[in-house]
Design a protein around this nucleic acid. Structure first.
Lengths: 152, 152
DNA sequence: AATAGTTGTAATATATCGTGTTACAACTCT
DNA sequence: AGAGTTGTAACACGATATATTACAACTATT
């Protein structure tokens, strides 16, 4: 089971909005072309990013821009914004009908829950350590390396 | 998106095999009753646990037993055994057709991959810190607390 | 003000996957 | 030999991720 691609799409969107901010009009169609998905998918994800206060868009007005500096946006913010993991359900799906008449069945939930939550937290804390400024920088560097490779 | 319940079912199975090892015949039907799922689900998960060298079962012969001491089985071992996350694909589903003609599109994958892997690793390392001996102990203690509550 | 283009969102379609269930051959134990 | 269990294939079903169509609401431009 995997965390949906809306998360990496969200990262791609913000990276591209920054990268092309002075060059192209960054609208949903442009982004869809860069990402390789349907423009409606892009608009859906952007809506979620907007609700989370990460980007600014306006109905009718073409183009999106960032609502925050890149170094204040972490991978976790995007992960959260696009609802990668349901808040209530959590990352781990627990079997739903453990038998209350069985000592193991009626206690397994309380015994396991905290440890599963800890593991999920470990994942999420790690996502907080990377900002979109890191991603943007690495991207520009990767693009730079491309031209070096051509020269050689 | 969630990690499937086969993981918590696997934990439940091993905990129950240990808990009832001297009391009942722990076969797939018994376990299915405790977990609250179909016996075939139990047999499927047990098959995966057996292939991973965690439990021992025999065709025709009723009952399952552990192949390792509890303190040598971690949550991660079970997570891995039941294939909670596909080895090749990883925990995060990347959008599959970023545009190679776009500087962001053709670099986003390499820029992000390592960081996503790091986050997944953080989750998995955390799962390694809990052994099934911990779970078994906590379960027995929880059962003990139940009878205390009755007294009061 | 009228036109063209864009966003936001609902509605629908399709494919994939988790889970449930039936069925049965292979096997063990008594 | 008979009863019971495991291992596994096959199929059903519902949930969900993603794609796509459609259109109202809105902006910018002429």
């Amino acid at each position: 089971m995997q965390i949906g691609s809306k998360f990496t799409i969200g990262v791609h969107i913000i990276t591209a909005i920054d990268y092309f901010k002075d060059m192209d009009r960054v609208n949903s169609e442009f982004l869809a072309g860069s990402i390789g998905v349907n423009p409606v998918i892009v608009r859906t994800v952007i809506s979620q990013l907007r609700e989370a206060g990460l980007v600014k868009t306006q109905r009718g007005s073409s183009g999106a821009e960032l609502a925050k500096p890149l170094n204040e946006i972490t991978l976790y913010d995007i992960y959260k914004a696009v609802g990668s993991v349901d808040e209530k359900e959590g990352l781990f799906h627990f079997h739903e009908q453990p038998n209350p008449d069985c000592p193991v069945g009626r206690n397994i939930h309380s015994v396991l829950d905290q440890r599963l939550m800890d593991a999920q937290k470990a994942l999420e804390e790690r996502l907080k350590t990377t900002t979109l400024a890191d991603i943007a920088e690495d991207t520009k560097q990767a693009v730079g390396n491309e031209s070096n490779e051509k020269k050689e």
